[in-house]
């Protein structure tokens, strides 16, 4: 079985983002960029499936400017076999990403596509579900466990209040949650080998996808700062403030 993993280059999770003074966006000048943490988990899961003999080939895909090739090399150093870079100027919207990936999926015919559940920059949490919708494949989102058995994917998902397990007919789309695995490190000999692994470059035009504008970002602001706290003088006053000012539900739910 072939697995496609889609990865995104994002601001490193440690970087404290600053909003530009003109409120046009956050300032990404010379900040550290890395593989999106959820994508790293997706790559790791694919490698584990390959090591377990379930998968035979891992193809990693990323969409964006030339710099994303750095993350594709990282994914190949970790264990992906080859890479496809879809070259675009800007970061396309989730629906456009899903359309581009659909074309790749149609050409590559994988048994499974694994993606991070969301990227830590735009926090959209959409691409995996949209890809599943466009391909008509079943989806297992927010996965904390993935097993392939008898031509089915058994996916345990993190849902509100607990875990839920689904059985999906293959081919299927899986998106990863944090607890699925702990990604490995890239070993030096593998980093060297990854430089020689094949990297194919395509454009949206090659794939016959028109990148359409659905949503525009008008401005970006710093979130309101936490207000200075107050002291209360009794338990009653505390409970009153929590209920009526902070609007906290002070009871067990469910």
């Amino acid at each position: 079985m072939k697995i496609i993993v889609s990865v995104k280059r994002v601001i490193d999770y440690n970087v404290k983002v600053r909003v530009k003074t003109d409120n046009s966006d956050v300032d990404l000048t010379n900040v550290k960029m890395s593989l999106n943490p959820f994508c790293e988990i997706a790559v790791e899961e694919a490698i584990r499936l390959k090591e377990a003999g379930v998968a035979s080939e891992i193809v990693v895909v990323s969409i964006g400017p030339n710099a994303v090739q750095e993350q594709l090399r990282t994914a190949m150093a970790l264990g992906a076999d080859r890479a496809i870079h879809i070259e675009t100027e800007m970061q396309p919207e989730p629906l456009n990403v899903a359309k581009l990936l659909t074309k790749i999926v149609e050409a590559e015919e994988p048994g499974l596509v694994i993606l991070g559940k969301q990227s830590i920059d735009s926090d959209n949490n959409q691409v995996g579900q949209m890809l599943a919708a466009l391909t008509g494949w079943p989806q297992g989102t927010f996965a904390s466990e993935v097993k392939i058995e008898d031509g089915k994917a058994l996916v345990t998902r993190e849902v509100d209040g607990g875990l839920r397990t689904l059985s999906l007919t293959l081919p299927a789309v899986v998106t990863t949650d944090l607890r699925l695995n702990e990604p490995r490190y890239a070993k030096l000999p593998d980093i060297m080998k990854a430089k020689r692994k094949p990297m194919e470059v395509k454009t949206p035009a090659d794939l016959n996808v028109h990148l359409k504008k659905h949503i525009s970002q008008l401005k970006v602001e710093t979130p309101p700062q936490r207000q200075v706290g107050i002291k209360v003088d009794s338990v009653d006053a505390l409970i009153d403030k929590l209920k009526n000012e902070a609007k906290i539900i002070l009871r067990k739910l469910g």
Binding site: I11, K16, V17, V19, V26, I120, D121, S122, D123, I215, S216, Q217, L218, K219, V220, E221, T222, P223
Partner: peptide, 10 residues
């Protein structure tokens, strides 16, 4: 966006 470190108007 950015885990709540910025608020976008879209």
């Amino acid at each position: 966006i950015y885990a709540g470190n910025a608020i976008a108007t879209v």
